[in-house]
């Protein structure tokens, strides 16, 4: 929570004190890299949700990958917003709003996954074991 605020302040300070085009390209490249990494993790999440055999493993894939990839994409977008046009207080404000969204996803998404898992455990959804039907079909 504090870490991403500090990092955004760090990037703001870099932009504020240096006006060389190298910083501009560096930040743009960083944001593109973060967004692409987030999209890659989203792809992994969706493959995991489709391919995993039972409810619990699917929720595991969805919860972990979803949280990480949304955080990466939003951080990339925050850097991108910081980098558009001249630096002003409004842009930093937009950045801080995006950071707040990151924090709430960081708290909310694992909790929602936990709640769904808990509900599944409460209603006795069956576990996947080695001799379940999914394996048998493949053989």
């Amino acid at each position: 929570m504090i870490l991403n605020i500090i990092s955004i302040l760090f990037f703001t300070a870099i932009l504020y004190f240096s006006s060389s085009p190298l910083v501009f390209y560096l930040l743009n490249g960083l944001s593109i890299c973060l967004i692409l990494l987030g999209l890659f993790f989203f792809l992994g999440t969706s493959i995991g949700v489709i391919r995993f055999p039972d409810f619990y493993t699917r929720m595991h894939a969805a919860g972990k990958g979803d949280t990480l990839s949304s955080i990466l994409i939003l951080f990339g977008i925050a850097l991108f917003v910081l980098n558009t046009g001249t630096l002003s207080i409004g842009l930093v404000l937009v950045c801080i709003k995006i950071l707040l969204i990151i924090n709430f996803i960081f708290i909310g998404s694992p909790t929602a996954t936990h709640a769904i898992m808990d509900a599944g455990y409460g209603t006795e959804v069956k576990h996947w074991t080695n001799d379940s039907e999914g394996i048998k079909k493949k053989k």
């Binding site: 709430f104 708290i107 909310g108 909790t111 936990h114 709640a115 808990d118």
Partner: peptide, 15 residues
């Protein structure tokens, strides 16, 4: 309910 859900909701609701 679970303790985790209660604490997380207590954190989120004011915001």
């Amino acid at each position: 309910e679970s303790l985790i859900i209660r604490k997380a909701c207590g954190l989120m609701v004011p915001f």
